[in-house]
Simulated scan of single mutants.
Amino acid sequence: MKRQRVLITIDWFLPGTKSGGPVRSYANMIDHLNHYYDFLIITRDTDYCSDEVYDSIQSDSWNQFNEHTSIYYFSKENLTRDNFSTLIKNTEFDILYVNGIYSWFFSILPILLVDKRHKIIVSARGMLNAQAFSVKKFKKKLFLILANAIKLYKHVYFHATNKDEAIQIESHIKCFKGMYIAPNLPRKMQGSTKAKQKHEGPTRFVNIARVSIEKGTLKMIEAMRTITSEVILEIYGPIYDSEYWIKCQNSINELPKNLKVEYKGVLESEDVPNALNDYDYLILLSEGENFGHAIIEALSSGLPVLISDNTPWKNLESKSIGWDVNIEKEEEIINAINKATRMSPLEYSKWSKSALEFADEFTQNPELIEQNKALFLSSQN
């Protein structure tokens, strides 16, 4: 039986990591599904907010990523409508899988160019969720008005990663062909199955996210101010807003001596599992996460997590794997931090074991694979 060929259009992909979750989502999906499908990816030859071309790739050419995946890296000078159109016409594929909503070249143009006899899927990646409109609200709303007016998505299926996102998509897109709900696939991790021991000395928190308002970096630092226990917080992630980072640094400088906060730079995606071993908890107080790869990867490493309640991961304390707090109520954040720092080594080991068991049950669920495979079933075209 002929393998289906899935063409993915996405602004940034591996070896880039600075654009965050979507790159990890697609890398994981390919890793899980390339036994069933061939993947072709069209992307840029630079990372997010970078002009430096990736090492060891050939720009404006197809590059073999693995046995069943090839990537075409567009250079900045050759990324034009004509060149994109020519590439699409000269590429044999069965299904178009579009990342995101607002990118002209990688989210909108492919839909306009591809023959509607192909199955077309758009993965919204949280871009239609309520919190996504806190940035560039007017432009996004205007685009959606125009898209609905011309029925841009008339022949398109949407991919939502959960029921809440499906509701958000339906509230903004008035005409589309169908909806799939399939959770993001986690990274295949070969971590320890043994519960972690809490580090001696200060409680060690790690934050893995871009330094930004929507990821709650400053809110996290400011919540630490009243903590009397000894705490180490280490922050990994790219900085895009220098003024915001200055505010974060000023807040760090005002913290009492029992709190040590350090920025550690950008952590490469493949280094995340090993890095997590150095910490007791992951903390991530974002305004919203469509999935949150760092969250499930932390749990897979035996780390309980302290996160906002604006993610799919809910009721964590009742499961003894962490806390999901209302980030608008600082007392909830402070209360959770205090519970984490004061947890006994014996209790911590129990929570770590619960985190491992929860992550294992989630990642080994065969239904996740089937839901994602169903996205590409051509019989539903």
Results as ranks from 00 to 15, higher is better:
124 A>Y: 08
175 C>G: 02
354 S>D: 10
304 P>K: 06
288 G>V: 01
81 R>D: 10
206 V>H: 12
289 E>L: 06
278 D>Q: 10
302 G>R: 01
38 D>Q: 10
94 D>R: 07
7 L>Q: 02
64 Q>C: 13
203 T>F: 07
40 L>E: 03
324 D>C: 07
230 E>M: 13
196 K>M: 03
134 S>T: 13
369 I>W: 09
171 S>H: 04
36 Y>Q: 11
82 D>Y: 09
257 K>M: 10
8 I>G: 06
97 Y>R: 03
46 T>Y: 12
153 Y>F: 10
50 S>H: 12
229 S>R: 12
273 P>Q: 05
202 P>Q: 02
253 N>P: 04
366 P>R: 12
16 G>T: 12
76 K>H: 15
351 W>Y: 13
293 H>C: 04
90 N>A: 12
193 T>M: 06
363 T>E: 07
325 V>R: 05
92 E>F: 14
92 E>D: 15
321 I>A: 11
45 D>Q: 08
339 K>I: 03
132 A>M: 02
156 V>R: 05
373 K>H: 04
330 E>Y: 07
81 R>C: 06
97 Y>K: 08
297 E>T: 01
297 E>S: 05
278 D>C: 05
48 Y>S: 01
33 L>R: 08
146 L>E: 10
379 S>M: 10
103 S>P: 02
107 S>G: 13
164 D>P: 05
72 Y>K: 08
117 R>V: 04
213 I>C: 00
112 L>I: 12
279 Y>A: 01
111 I>K: 13
153 Y>A: 03
334 I>A: 12
54 Y>K: 04
325 V>Q: 08
137 K>P: 00
69 T>W: 11
51 D>L: 04
186 P>Q: 10
289 E>C: 06
124 A>R: 06
163 K>Y: 09
143 F>S: 07
129 N>I: 09
89 K>E: 06
219 K>Y: 00
80 T>V: 05
184 N>L: 11
90 N>I: 03
37 Y>E: 07
286 S>P: 01
43 T>K: 01
6 V>A: 08
105 F>W: 15
192 S>T: 08
371 Q>R: 14
267 L>G: 00
57 I>M: 07
334 I>S: 10
292 G>M: 02
146 L>Y: 12
377 L>M: 14
207 N>R: 15
50 S>M: 03
226 T>Y: 11
355 A>C: 10
142 L>Y: 15
224 M>Q: 04
14 L>Y: 11
133 F>W: 05
80 T>H: 08
224 M>V: 06
258 N>P: 09
112 L>D: 15
164 D>W: 09
121 I>R: 05
189 M>T: 10
120 I>Y: 04
354 S>T: 05
75 S>R: 11
313 W>G: 00
180 Y>M: 04
240 Y>G: 02
343 M>K: 11
347 E>M: 09
48 Y>R: 09
311 T>I: 00
153 Y>V: 06
252 I>Y: 01
259 L>M: 13
341 T>Y: 10
228 T>L: 10
371 Q>D: 08
206 V>Q: 09
72 Y>F: 14
72 Y>L: 14
326 N>V: 06
168 Q>I: 07
163 K>P: 01
208 I>D: 02
77 E>Y: 13
299 L>K: 03
246 I>A: 13
220 M>V: 01
159 H>F: 15
328 E>P: 03
213 I>P: 00
